[in-house]
Structures are given as structure tokens and as C-alpha cells.
Amino acid sequence: MTKSNKFSPEVRERAVRLVQEHRGEYPSLWAAVESIAPKIGCVPQTLLEWVKRAEVDAGERPGTTTAEAQRLKELERENKELRRANDILRTASAFFAQAELDRKLKS
């Protein structure tokens, strides 16, 4: 099940930029997020996640960047496909080896 993206990337970027620009006007990051989230039309927790993700992508916060996560996902998918192909080839090889043995015994 995929979650729908209610907000466009442009809205997300604008919201994150607003938080970053006005962060100094509030005592904490959470206070800035709580103030700006209703103006964007999202819940504060969602906006906080966007801000954290933007900070990770910018290298300001430790963690896996969006690009790295996407690349890892692609590699895992490719690995899964290769394992499946190897299983098919292994099964086919065993089948043909057995068929060759059966043919030699009948001769």
C-alpha cells in the first residue's frame, strides 16, 4: 500500500524554507513548526519530518540522504531479481543434468 502525497514538492520546499527562515524567531524548532504547519495545512509532525529530511539531505544532520536511500532500494531490488534468476538457472541446470543422466541410462 502506497501512501499518497497530498502536498506537492513545491509546497514541501516552501514549508521547509519558511521554518528555516523563521526558526530564530521561536525558542525551539518545534515551536516554529507548530506555528507554521497550520498555515501550510499540515500537521506539525509532518512538517517536522520534512524539515529533518531536508537537513539530512543538506548534510546538516546525520542520516541516510534521500538519494542514498533510493539507490539502496534500487540495489536491493536488483539483488532480489538476480537471486531469483540464479534460483531459476540452478533449477534448470539440475533438471537438464537429470535428463542427461536418464538418457544415458536408457541407451
Rank of each mutant, 00 (worst) to 15 (best):
E21A: 13
E21V: 15
H22A: 04
H22Q: 11
H22C: 04
H22E: 07
R23S: 10
R23T: 02
R23M: 13
R23C: 09
G24V: 09
E25N: 09
E25D: 15
Y26F: 15
P27I: 02
P27V: 04
P27M: 09
P27Y: 05
P27Q: 11
P27R: 12
S28F: 13
S28D: 15
S28C: 11
S28Y: 14
L29I: 09
L29S: 07
L29V: 13
W30L: 14
W30N: 14
W30V: 07
W30R: 15
W30G: 12
A31E: 15
A31G: 08
A31F: 12
A32W: 02
A32D: 05
A32C: 15
V33W: 00
V33Q: 01
V33S: 01
E34T: 14
S35Y: 09
S35A: 15
S35G: 02
I36F: 00
I36L: 04
I36E: 00
I36T: 03
A37I: 06
A37F: 03
A37Y: 01
A37S: 08
A37C: 06
P38F: 12
P38R: 11
K39F: 14
K39D: 14
K39V: 13
K39H: 15
K39W: 12
I40K: 01
I40S: 04
C42Y: 02
C42S: 09
V43K: 14
V43M: 08
P44F: 04
P44E: 03
Q45A: 11
Q45R: 08
T46A: 08
T46H: 06
T46W: 03
T46S: 09
L48Y: 12
L48Q: 04
L48V: 01
L48T: 01
L48S: 06
E49F: 02
E49L: 07
W50T: 00
V51E: 00
K52E: 00
K52T: 04
K52V: 07
R53F: 02
A54E: 05
A54K: 02
E55F: 05
E55T: 04
E55N: 14
E55S: 12
V56Y: 05
V56E: 08
V56Q: 08
V56T: 14
A58S: 12
A58I: 02
A58P: 03
G59E: 04
G59M: 05
G59W: 07
E60W: 01
R61V: 00
R61T: 00
R61S: 01
P62T: 06
P62N: 08
P62D: 10
P62E: 11
G63R: 10
G63A: 11
T64L: 12
T64N: 06
T64A: 07
T64Q: 13
T65C: 05
T65H: 08
T65E: 07
T65Q: 08
T65W: 05
T66L: 10
T66I: 04
T66N: 10
A67H: 06
A67F: 09
E68A: 13
E68N: 09
A69D: 10
A69K: 10
A69Y: 04
Q70Y: 13
Q70V: 14
Q70S: 11
Q70H: 11
R71L: 11
R71I: 04
E74P: 00
E74V: 02
E74Q: 05
E74M: 01
L75M: 13
L75W: 09
L75C: 05
L75P: 00
E76N: 11
E76I: 14
R77A: 15
R77E: 11
R77L: 12
R77M: 08
R77V: 02
